[in-house]
Nucleic acid binder design. Sequence first.
DNA 1: ATATTAAAACGTAAATATTCATAAATTATT
DNA 2: AATAATTTATGAATATTTACGTTTTAATAT
Lengths: 261, 261
Amino acid sequence: MNDHTIINDKTIDRRQKILEILYLQSQVKVNDLSKIFNVSEVTIRNDLSQLEAKRMLIKTRGGALKSTNVGLDPNLEIKKNQNLKEKQLIGIAASKLINDGDTIILDSGTTTVEVAKNLQRFNDLTIITNALNIVNELIQYPNFKVIIPGGILRRKSLSLIGHSAETTLRNYYCDKIIMGIDGIDVKYGITTPNIEEANLNKTMIEISRELIVVADSSKFGRRSLAFISKIDRIKTLVTDKKISDIDLKKLKEAGVHVIVV
Amino acid sequence: MNDHTIINDKTIDRRQKILEILYLQSQVKVNDLSKIFNVSEVTIRNDLSQLEAKRMLIKTRGGALKSTNVGLDPNLEIKKNQNLKEKQLIGIAASKLINDGDTIILDSGTTTVEVAKNLQRFNDLTIITNALNIVNELIQYPNFKVIIPGGILRRKSLSLIGHSAETTLRNYYCDKIIMGIDGIDVKYGITTPNIEEANLNKTMIEISRELIVVADSSKFGRRSLAFISKIDRIKTLVTDKKISDIDLKKLKEAGVHVIVV
DNA sequence: ATATTAAAACGTAAATATTCATAAATTATT
DNA sequence: AATAATTTATGAATATTTACGTTTTAATAT
């Protein structure tokens, strides 16, 4: 496959790269890796054994395959980017639903970050967000008014939650809310794993005229702990083309405008 | 680890340079650094351990990698920062004024960031801050309760200001506020260039039992636009040894406890 | 189909090299 | 003199390669 060698004497770094290659190509071979990193095959086997012991891959004869339960390991940055391309397309499409002058809420989440990255064309937006990684993106737009309701830091989602956040939010009324969610089920509605986050989301929806949901197709059929809203409250849903025909049909029946990218 | 470690100039310089090299090259090796700085590998390993404890890098066998910082803007750390060495020493000294269990306000500013970097030894702190770069540091301490009053983003200081911030703040009462300022004059008091920021600072002082000011010596004799407080409200001031004897004398006469690093 | 066989991949162990953690001794620094 | 910072020294842990015998695979002959 690839002849040229990467010079690298860092064991940990090599193992990280092995994982990256594995995630790009779904499988790796011992002899390939040996050539790529310019180390003996025994070393590569040793690497694969170590990684297998940490359940980050499954060894096979001649190489290794992706682990099935990698999703359980929160440290894997790689997984975060798995549907990145879909999320980027969704982000671009969702940004087109915004008009200059709008007041919008940008909810926390990796998909909504992609929306925040695509706001260059606007001159005048007021954006309310409780997610610090969204704020980080918004800093680049010098003219936007950025309002952070505040609250108690939730590290896992880098968002601010709690009673005071909800109280502050009720002082505002918005044109649109763009919300990322953890699960969407055409029957049960949209859900998220954290109860407090769900409460905040409910408040956000209440103070917004229009609910836009961004969700890649992997979120469909998934049902998380905390309920946020029924499907028919959604005005527009932006997702990718891997959505099933059945889901698509049911969404349209519920009056949801679906944009597929 | 020692709670009362005082770090000298050379060490701080070397560690800062290690970080700079790390950010330029994405990885550093123990043996390279040992040659570059002409110190033993044990010293370098010690440096890397200290920096890892502050979540500024990740140690690997043979060296270190960039921290997979989940925070907001890791590259800003290396940004040019005047009097950095003094501020680092002030930050370490000021952190010793905090007790486990305290509720404190950490104001925005480059010196207060240095305080936030030195809170490893605490198990239980509640920290109220309106500065996003401070929050960025606080993310690393999993047990601290971090409260952000919220407000409108002021990009220049990465802080949140406005009426709602002040309203929310008045719900709290704190043991200590650690405040960074722009100017301090023994006659006129402490000042800052932004009026809204000054208003917020006044509120912060009102809800705090104890005012601690951190200010490197370059701030003395400087008078900014907006007044924050008189000198005698300050309980403790932490500054560096370039402070003049006259200033030092007058501060002590006003009842301010001065810590010189 | 079944047996045979060569190539590929494997595991294991021994030898070597690196890197590490630790503690005691030494050298600044205050 | 006391505290920090650093170095030296040492044994432990980890990483890597080479070597060698075994197992698996897959192609070929029976």
